[in-house]
Design a protein around this nucleic acid. Structure first.
Lengths: 152, 152
DNA sequence: GGGCTGATTGACGTTAACGTTAGAGACTTG
DNA sequence: CAAGTCTCTAACGTTAACGTCAATCAGCCC
């Protein structure tokens, strides 16, 4: 496990400040190491280094989890990066706060638009569903009857 | 306009059944010709041919518009194709109807999931918005004040 | 019959977000 | 000390949905 043992050795004994190797982080967050390295490449993560080896802090882990959440929400990495950077505007520069607020609002507007699009798509699909179910009933067949070979 | 003139010549005089060349269709639907050819390549469209030249019917145009709508809704071309094919299950083969119904329901489930994801993303973003706005007010600044350079 | 326009078929280029070898250190263990 | 494990960088491969030439062919105009 490389130098990690050495590191953990340096720390008194226990959890101290909880750090992770890339494999640990990958396992716990259920991503590949490749993905993690890629995020670092794209400056979404910036773990500290111990020689060559990456050491991830709790903060790094939180960031990664935010990244993954963003992905599940369908955001691009670029967008996620923007939002993360945006969240870290904790300086008291008014201009920065304003820009952040503005971007956030734009994204809200985008999402509201998407919501509406999805809603209308759902309406159409449900219409289609009713149509198909009706046609099956016409043929004296129960639409709820389970069809076999239903696996992934 | 190549053979088109010849074709229109064959038709009595006017609109007859309204057909389009690829450039006309592209212009009216605001897509590139390349995209249209690509959709044909992927079997999402199948215009008739007059020699080499593609001739699009009203039905083709409707299909294209559905494709574009699907795209706006974030569906992949594969998914769109599936749905289009699905909508055209007008044969009375029970098995087909059932499969179509099943797929439709799965997609509905997916979309409902997306809706929820977006809803929670929106909740977070609105939370962030409140936070930022509050911090600006703390500094005695009106969050609604318009920021310049607001263009695209 | 030379040129312009518009259509067609390749076929390579592009972006995003990683996957997948490949080769090479670093460290532990038998 | 050799094997095994974990890590690193480098770099090419992949999918989706077209963009962007390039070369060609067909018809119309003067």
């Amino acid at each position: 496990m490389a130098k990690l043992t050495a590191i953990e050795g340096k720390e008194p004994a226990g959890v101290g400040e909880q750090e992770y190797t890339i494999s640990e982080l990958a396992a716990e967050c259920e991503v590949t190491q490749r993905a993690i390295r890629f995020y670092e490449d794209q400056h979404l993560l910036a773990p500290r280094r111990l020689g060559q080896i990456r050491i991830f802090s709790r903060r790094d882990r939180v960031r990664l989890e935010l990244i993954l959440r963003g992905k599940r929400l369908g955001f691009s990495l670029a967008a996620i990066k923007e939002m993360l950077d945006l969240c870290e505007v904790d300086g008291d520069h008014v201009q920065q706060l304003r820009v952040a607020l503005d971007r956030g609002r734009r994204r809200i507007a985008e999402l509201v638009g998407q919501q509406q699009d999805i809603a209308s798509a759902l309406a159409e699909l449900r219409e289609l569903e009713r149509h198909l179910a009706a046609r099956l009933r016409e043929k004296g067949i129960d639409p709820e009857e389970i069809v076999k070979s239903d696996a992934a």
